[in-house]
């Protein structure tokens, strides 16, 4: 996949991102200034990359799930579970590698649970993952025994959330590495194509020899794993596991990032780069609102209005109206196929 293609396909997202960053720079003149503080890069732009880490990671897993025409509502709760597991492992005296391995394993298990409900039992993804979304916080509460489980004296785990490497905050490095790995795996192999095929028509792809069960299990497992990484970062960031609030409503932000990134909720063609840009758009918006200093009552309204504008600009109707010659024939084709699939 050549770079210019990516740029051309993601023009709307790129424009939105640039506009929002420019707005932020107007609101807060020092927005783009980056300096070195305590041996690490420091500035609002770095904050956007750093604070955006959880949603970015969730969006990577969510993109693959949505591409199969599924959805994963449980990622926020999985973050809470994994944060609780990480905190309790490290405070029980386990080493950092053991803690991380245990935490990621729990995330993987949560993802496989969702995958099993969807792929093996054919339960609708929205309901299948709703189970863990609701139960997950309870599980996390049980692990932390209802308190915020702190680990102020465990610098090795705290490093994952607020340390830095090569002057970059660790969360940024982690999400960039995970994103590159994910893009390489799905685009340098046929896996991405097979995921899209399942999203367009699961039965047809099964009949043509795609092992759809295994791939569905795998995408939910990856989503669980991404949520696990996000959960460890979120806990390490505040040096404690907050079962009530860790990852709260982040599944919605992740879905939004995927949609803003140009992946259809109807499944089929997906773009990981688009979702990453979507996540950055959302975080730039959040940071901008905080920097603007409006009364907090306006936060959600401003966010909603700007997202509405973005979605209107990106909607197929206005895309067609603005650039008739550049109508995305592929999207139309996918949609038609989906409609046929639904009508079957």
């Amino acid at each position: 996949m050549a770079v210019p293609t990516i740029v051309r396909e993601r023009t709307p997202q790129l424009i939105v991102l640039v506009v929002i960053l420019a707005l932020n720079a107007i609101i807060s003149p020092g927005f783009f200034s980056i300096e070195i503080q305590n041996d690490r890069l420091y500035g609002s732009l770095i904050d956007v990359l750093n604070r955006g880490a959880p949603v970015t990671l969730l969006a990577i897993g969510m993109t693959l799930v949505i591409a199969t025409k599924g959805i994963d509502l449980s990622v926020g709760a999985v973050m809470a579970i994994v944060g609780a597991v990480a905190a309790s492992l490290i405070t029980s005296g386990y080493s950092l590698p053991a803690t991380l391995a245990g935490s990621l394993f729990v995330g993987l298990a949560c993802g496989l649970w969702n995958g099993a409900l969807v792929a093996l039992l054919d339960i609708q993804p929205i309901i299948a993952t709703l189970i863990l979304m609701v139960a997950g916080r309870g599980i996390a509460q049980l692990i932390t025994e209802g308190v915020i489980l702190t680990f102020n004296d465990k610098p090795e785990l705290i490093f994952v959330g607020s340390g830095s490497f090569l002057s970059l905050p660790m969360p940024v490095i982690i999400w960039v590495v995970v994103a590159i790995l994910a893009i390489l795996v799905v685009r340098r192999s046929a896996l991405g194509l097979l995921i899209e095929a399942i999203g367009v028509n699961r039965r047809a792809s099964t009949l043509s020899g795609v092992n759809s069960r295994v791939i569905l299990l795998a995408v939910y497992a990856v989503s669980g794993l991404c949520a696990a990484v996000a959960g460890v970062i979120a806990a390490a960031d505040i040096k404690g596991a907050d079962a009530n609030n860790a990852g709260l409503w982040l599944e919605m932000d992740a879905i939004l990032a995927v949609v803003i990134g140009g992946t259809s909720l109807l499944g089929g063609r997906f773009s990981l780069v688009g979702s990453l840009m979507g996540a950055m758009i959302i975080q730039s918006l959040n940071t901008g609102i905080l920097l603007a200093g409006f009364p907090p009552e306006f936060n959600l309204i401003i966010k909603a209005v700007i997202i509405l504008i973005i979605l209107i600009v990106q909607s197929p109707a206005s895309q067609a109206a603005m650039a008739g010659f550049r109508t995305n024939r592929h999207t139309v084709a996918v949609k038609t196929e989906n409609r046929e699939h639904a009508a079957r």
Binding site: S28, G30, G43, S44, D47, R51, I148, A234, D237, I238, G240, D242, N244, N245, A246, T287, L290, L291, G293, P295, P296, N299
Partner: peptide, 23 residues
């Protein structure tokens, strides 16, 4: 000089304070 919600949580308290300091 600045007042913003942190939703009673540590995560938001940290994020909002970061923005206060930058601003």
């Amino acid at each position: 000089i600045r007042s913003q919600t942190g939703d009673f949580t540590r995560t938001k308290g940290k994020e909002v304070m970061e923005s206060f300091i930058k601003a």
